[in-house]
Amino acid sequence: MPNYVMVIDLHRCTGCGACIIGCKNENNTPEGVFWAHHVYETTGTFPDVKYTYMPTLCNHCDNAPCIDVCPVDPKALFKVEGGMTLHSVEKCIGCRVCENACPYGVIYFNEEEPHGFWRDTSVLIEGVTASPQEVVERVGGTVIPYYNPDRETTYEGIRPANKVEKCTFCDHRLVYGLQPYCNEVCPSGARFLGDLDDPNSDVSRLLDQYPYKRPQEELGTEPRVYYIREYNPKPK
C-alpha cells in the first residue's frame, strides 16, 4: 500500500489561491470552511520588506492529536492505509475536541446548516431574478448548483451542521490514481502527492533533492505534508 505524503514546493508556489478555490469546488465546502488554506506574513520595514506565503491543509499526521482526543468509541477520526486521517460524520458527536487539539487549525466545525446562501428563497428583483434555491431546483445539484457528486463517494457530499469536517487528501480521487484536486488545479506545478516508499515517485525524488520542513515538527505529530525550498527568491 502506498505511503502517501504531500510535497509543496514553495519556490514554485505563486500564492495565487487556486488550491483554495479548487478545494472548495471539489469538496463542496461551505463558506468559511477551508480544507485547503494558507498562512502568510509580511516582515521587515519598507523598503526592505518581504511577503511570504505558505499553502496549508490537514497534515494527516502519523501521530494525530485529533485522533488521540476523539472521545467516541470507535473514534470518528481514524487512519487508513496510505496514511490519511479520515473522519466519519456518522460517528462524530460534534464535541469539537479534535478541532481544539489540532495544532494546525485545519479542522472546521459547521455551526449552522451549511450553504445557507443556496437555501435562501429571497430574490433581488421580483419576477426577473431568481432565488438561490430556485437556481438549484432548475439546474440540479445537491444544495449547490455546481455540487460535485464525486465527494459523496467516500464522505458526506456536504457535511451537516454540528459536525466537524476536514481534508481527506481527496481519498475519493486517490483511489482512482488521481491527484488531490488542490494539486490538480495548482497552475504553478507546486504540489505533489505520492508514495514515499516508491523511490521513483515525484515526492521521493523531491525530498531527495531538496531539504524539507514540516510544520511544527517539534510537536512530534509527524506531519505528512512536506515543504521544500523558499517562497521568496533570494537577491542575486
Binding site: 487512519k79 487508513v80 492505509e81 496510505g82 479520515l86 467516500t154 458526506e156 483511489v175 482512482y176 490514481g177
Partner: peptide, 30 residues
C-alpha cells in the same frame, strides 16, 4: 481516462498496528 492503466485501490482502515479489511462503502463514511 481513469480506466487507462490506472491501478484502482481502496483504502483500508488501520486499527492500531493492525490493518482491517474495510472497503470504502459508497455514499457515506467508511
Amino acid at each position: 481516462e481513469l480506466g487507462k492503466g490506472i491501478k484502482r485501490r481502496t483504502f483500508l482502515k488501520i486499527s492500531g498496528a493492525a490493518v482491517a479489511v474495510a472497503a470504502l462503502a459508497g455514499g457515506c463514511a467508511p
